[in-house]
């Protein structure tokens, strides 16, 4: 459902922010300006590594009003499925890539009295695009970024342009030293909380907030990079009449796409529900944040972008 034709983007420059963090800046390959992106938006890059095609989603960290360039920050993950490794090692300034137009599944709530942003590690990226937007709106906000000790200065530098007072803090002491319950229990009525980071952090924030009486509608989380690979299996696409092998480091969605089947997708991170596909046979290892516990237990659907088969075979109505 990504609207409009993909963009052709040229790598303008690549800046190493930390040993495993690089910022990539893109400009329109054929001149002109990019579309105005939504705050908290992300883009999907098509990465062609030889015969292998990967589509990875990255949050835009450039301000929403910036149309001459789009910036993303990419963490080189040790057990990378290929996307971050490809970007870090093989992409160079001048290269042209294909990028789907930005969409946002993580918008700022317009009715919020205050925005409380909590980031963990590379989860800072969607929060970075919120900051100029909140400043422009004159919105009240507070941002807490959790980082490993050596990356504290990196995140402090990224946040420095927006820090005017006490409202932005980088915590390097680990999650145990971060008083999450205290933070969530002193927020004024009308606060919305947004969290992006490792699953353990997102679960801690959503669980603690709910236990303190925050309504579900005021808790927002952005999950990316949920796909971690697993045992290989065979997927049977009943309607298309084909079978595909899903490799260890490949997602089900990527394998389907590699076979030439146009499967629905949007966030590629288990969050939006666009790729939900009926299951005819086989057991699913659900890894998404979209389906309810009942839907997961029911086993009738699978989100192809992050979930896999629990077993050798999965038959899909696709």
């Amino acid at each position: 459902m990504t609207a409009g034709a993909p963009l052709q983007v040229r790598v303008r420059d690549i800046v190493e922010l930390a040993p495993s963090l690089k910022r990539f800046s893109f400009e329109p390959a054929h001149g002109g300006l990019f579309p105005t992106p939504p705050a908290g938006g992300h883009v999907m890059l098509t990465l062609r590594d030889g015969a292998r095609v990967m589509k990875n989603a990255y949050s835009l960290v450039s301000p929403p009003m910036e149309r001459a360039r789009y910036d993303i920050i990419v963490r080189l993950v040790a057990q990378s499925r290929g996307g971050s490794d490809f970007l870090h090692r093989k992409v160079a300034p001048g290269d042209v890539l294909e990028m789907a137009r930005p969409v946002s599944l993580f918008p700022l709530a317009s009715s919020a009295k205050k925005h409380l942003l909590i980031g963990g590690g590379i989860g800072i990226t969607p929060l970075l695009s919120f900051l100029p937007e909140m400043k422009a709106r004159g919105a009240r906000f507070e941002l807490h970024q959790l980082a490993t000790g050596e990356e504290v200065p990196v995140f402090e530098r990224l946040l420095a342009p927006y820090a005017t007072g006490e409202e932005i803090r980088v915590h390097g002491g680990g999650r145990a030293a971060f008083d999450l319950a205290g933070l969530l229990s002193r927020q004024p009525l009308g606060t919305h909380v947004y969290v992006c980071g490792p699953h353990a952090l997102m679960d801690a924030v959503t669980g603690t907030a709910a236990a303190l009486g925050w309504p579900r509608g005021k808790i927002h989380k952005e999950s990316f990079g949920g796909a971690t690979g697993g045992l290989p299996f065979r997927a049977v696409l009943r309607r298309s009449g084909i079978e595909v092998e899903v490799g260890e480091t490949q997602t089900l969605l990527e394998a389907i796409e590699a076979a030439g089947v146009a499967a629905p997708c949007l966030c590629r991170g288990g969050a939006c529900g666009e790729c939900v596909t009926p299951v005819i046979e086989g057991e699913v290892d659900h890894r998404d944040d979209f389906l309810s516990a009942e839907e997961k237990a029911g086993g009738k659907v699978v989100m192809t972008c992050v979930s896999r088969a629990r077993g050798p075979r999965l038959v899909l109505d696709l």
């Binding site: 969530l184 004024p188 009525l189 907030a209 009486g213 925050w214």
Partner: peptide, 10 residues
């Protein structure tokens, strides 16, 4: 009262 209340109130 609501102006000084915190999240969790119904």
């Amino acid at each position: 009262r609501l102006a000084r209340e915190t999240m969790g109130l119904r």
